[in-house]
Design a protein around this nucleic acid. Structure first.
Lengths: 122, 122
DNA sequence: GAACTATATACGCATTGGATCATATTTGAA
DNA sequence: TTCAAATATGATCCAATGCGTATATAGTTC
């Protein structure tokens, strides 16, 4: 009901008139990753599947808040959800997340290193 | 004054206690990319350097709005700024942006394809 | 079914950030 | 110096979103 035109994104540089819908989707994906607590959750899940209580413990957030963030991450397709009795286990479903985080981390590292150099080189 | 501990992000999966500061920086970077109009600007700049008026024309936004978004992108280190007389030219300064966008696009494409399959396969 | 645990959700509040209008600033030209 | 064009910024409004508290739902055990 919401995917009429498959996003055409051939290498991101060839597009002529990229549709608004596609832009919104991409922006949304970035927005999901734009919260420190959600990044913390992802980081915790990099080691492997965990249930909500474990994540609450690991991140130090409130249960309600963690639950909400997990919902956000899951409904965006980044996490998967698995029920086992009373427990609900979450895991990283979209492997591109690893690379994505690495890219941003690397870029920031480089950026900060350059800035540090500017200070040092006087 | 704001980069005391260089973000340690060795492959994103090895970190023990990733500092809040780092998380905020990463989240901020994602947040900058989480706006359709900014993505549109980046897309326009993928072809090469452009000045503000050109970008206003290409994106269909208002001058004030475009100017603000360019400011956001520039101060985050994603774009560079070059003055030439009355004109101000912006260009992509952080090459990782290309890869970043490709990654997200690819991931979304795959996700939507899967969803489409679910519908088709009944 | 009652009680308990794990997880999800509804509500209200406070903050943030984008869009717009008007105006300021910079620079080139007459 | 005065004007005009290109760009930036201040003020304001409005929508979105995150957080906390309280409560609801689901599943387990007795």
């Amino acid at each position: 009901m919401s995917a009429p035109n498959p996003i055409s994104c051939p290498s991101a540089s060839k597009i002529r008139s990229l549709p608004d819908e596609g832009l919104e989707l991409i922006a949304r994906r970035f927005a999901v990753l734009a919260e420190p607590m959600r990044l913390r959750l992802l980081h915790s899940l990099f080691e492997g599947e965990k249930n909500v209580s474990q994540l609450v413990e690991l991140t130090g957030g409130t249960q309600a808040n963690i639950s909400r963030h997990l919902q956000t991450l899951t409904s965006s397709g980044i996490l998967s959800r698995r029920k086992e009795g009373l427990l609900v286990f979450y895991a990283i479903a979209d492997p591109s997340i690893y690379h994505l985080c690495d890219l941003v981390c690397g870029s920031l590292e480089q950026q900060l290193t350059k800035q540090a150099d500017v200070f040092a080189r006087r």
